[in-house]
Amino acid sequence: MDEITNIGIIEYRNILKAVSETHGIDFSHKSFTAFVRSIERAMALNNIRGTESLISILTTNKNFIHRFISDISIEETEMFRDPNLWLELRDNIIPQYLKKGCNIWVPEVTSGDELITLTIVLKELDMLSDVRITATCFGRNQVDIIKEAVFPMKKMEVNTANFARYNSKLNLKDFYIEKNNKAYFDKELIRNVNVKQFEFIVDETPQNINMVLYRNKMIYYNKRMQNSILNKITDSMITGGIFICGVKENLESSNNEKSFVVINESESIYKKIS
């Protein structure tokens, strides 16, 4: 890595303005530092030098925006991240709170690591065919990425180590085939998952949701947008539903704090009470 965060605030605003005016997409609610880095990563991936070139491509090449959205998205880090959370979900939360016919929503899926993890946990509980999972993503290209369920083999080392800490009777290797340095996961896991494009700002949220798995996604928004997303998520959930965010995210000081009680503080698991 030679350069970090070279885009200044004025260039940043110019990029946001270009995207907004040309494509009607508002990125002004993004968390600044991480989003600057995402833009820089997208520029490097596409060999774009300088923000003026980026703005020129964004405003003249209509199709580039889909690629840009895909390239700025931040991959989920690994499967079974925070193994204790998945243990808690498998051994306590899901058996206690999710029944046949329940609805689970996984918003803003990027690479699909969390979604695959969830399906393996449900499979272990023999509940995968009993629940309806909706996975939403921001970009058009991501729908295909999620449905492919292919992951680089270099990620499997940490995934396997996490899985071992999750203390399962199953073997992670039984869920994928290694080919060309990639792990092809069993598509049966996501066969019944409804994967669709979704934008918090404009789209209608799913309804009657029993569990929302939304980890380490709010961190990429400013506080105001976090509140507005949490309003929508709260509205989508049934009373008694479960909300899970990242271990370093919380509902404290959000507008929705009073709608939830903490049921597991260290794993950031909440229950909706009103």
Binding site: S31, F32, T33, A34, I74, T77, I219, G246, E249
Partner: peptide, 24 residues
């Protein structure tokens, strides 16, 4: 800085965390 997160200090005197790929 918490485990498995990058930690940023942003204008406005707040932290922002991130799970971007590891650096170094």
């Amino acid at each position: 800085a918490p485990a498995n997160y990058h930690m940023y200090m942003e204008l406005g005197n707040t932290f922002a965390l991130s799970t971007e790929p590891p650096v170094n």
